[in-house]
Write a protein that binds this DNA or RNA. Structure first.
Length: 287
DNA sequence: AACCGCAACAACCGCAAAGGG
DNA sequence: TCCCTTTGCGGTTGTTGCGGT
């Protein structure tokens, strides 16, 4: 792991939100060179960030296949049940949520699910409970009350975009906490969809990623929600990695075919250099 | 219109594990 | 085997925007 060739002079690293330009630089670099020594990335990519920050940015927001937007009922159930089972092992929990990152799961838990679970268990502090009365009188997340029809989501530049995906999820049924058995069932099941491209990647390319033109129009609006509620991560890679590949090859849905057009399984392997592969933890990158 | 509180989420920080020299 | 560096993870903080007053 040590990477002595990456030695670099200490510098004042930029902090705070990432600008679209920084995102672009990081993407460009990784697409061109693949993932390697993160500590070397900032210098090579011309970024005044530390490697840690670049890694986090890539994993949480720039990596292809991330799902943005509201958690579905099924995802909520998985988080709740796995949290009960594993504790705050967000990386492990995220493994079972295709397209979700540990950070996203953690934030969702801390900002919403935790209160719901506490209330369900009757252990929610009175002050919290009071604050939650209005929002918890139904099973919708508080935000859905506050922004009923248009959910404003910040992007990295601090501006907001309007996403409708949360509204889409409103129709997904009750948000009540389901039986614990659900989670156990869920992690054993195969991912339902495999879309092996990020929303910033071309949906279908005959030439494969190598010939892919890096124009800005292909990138998502930074961290803004793409409104994508389609499971777009490469499945629950983690424990299911090998079987997922098998499943993928058997998948002949139009979506999968379109996404993988001209590339298919071959693309997956090639893009592994870019994606870094999805490691045993599912959401982590291996290099 | 201004201020305040809340919610959501992006990002930082610190620690531990992993791996090379 | 030890030391050093990098990576990964979880906790926490900071920032932003919205609704209410």
């Amino acid at each position: 792991m040590g990477c002595r060739s990456c030695d670099k002079p200490k510098m004042n690293y930029r902090k705070g939100l990432w600008s679209p330009e920084e995102d672009q630089r990081l993407r460009d670099y990784i697409v061109k060179h693949g993932l390697g020594c993160w500590s070397a990335v900032p210098a090579k990519a011309g970024l005044q960030r530390n490697g840690k920050s670049c890694r986090l940015r890539w994993i949480n927001y720039l990596r292809p296949g991330l799902k943005r937007g509201m958690f579905s009922q099924e995802e909520e159930d998985i988080v709740i049940n796995l949290q009960a089972k594993l504790g705050n092992k967000w990386a492990q929990i995220a493994m079972h949520l295709p397209g979700r990152t540990d950070n996203e799961v953690k934030n969702y838990w801390n900002s919403y699910l935790k209160k719901r679970v506490m209330q369900a268990q009757g252990s929610i502090p009175s002050n919290l409970a009071a604050a939650e009365v209005t929002s918890m009188s139904t099973t919708e997340p508080p935000s859905l009350h506050r922004h009923h029809h248009q959910q404003h989501i910040k992007n990295s530049s601090g501006s907001t975009t309007t996403s409708h995906d949360r509204d889409a999820n409103l129709s997904s049924g009750s948000h009540g906490i389901s039986a614990p058995a659900l989670a156990a069932e869920t992690f054993d099941q195969q991912p339902k969809n495999f879309v092996f491209s990020g929303d910033w990647m071309p949906a279908a390319t005959a030439e494969g990623p190598e010939s892919y033109s890096l124009s800005a129009q292909h990138w998502p609006a930074s961290t803004a929600s793409s409104g994508n509620v389609t499971p777009s991560h490469a499945g629950a890679f983690g424990d299911h990695m090998s079987s997922s590949y098998g499943a993928l090859q058997q998948q002949s849905s139009a979506a999968a075919a379109a996404t993988m057009a001209g590339g298919g399984y071959f693309d997956l392997l090639n893009m592994g250099d870019i994606y870094g592969g999805f490691g045993a933890t599912g959401d982590d990158l291996l290099f």
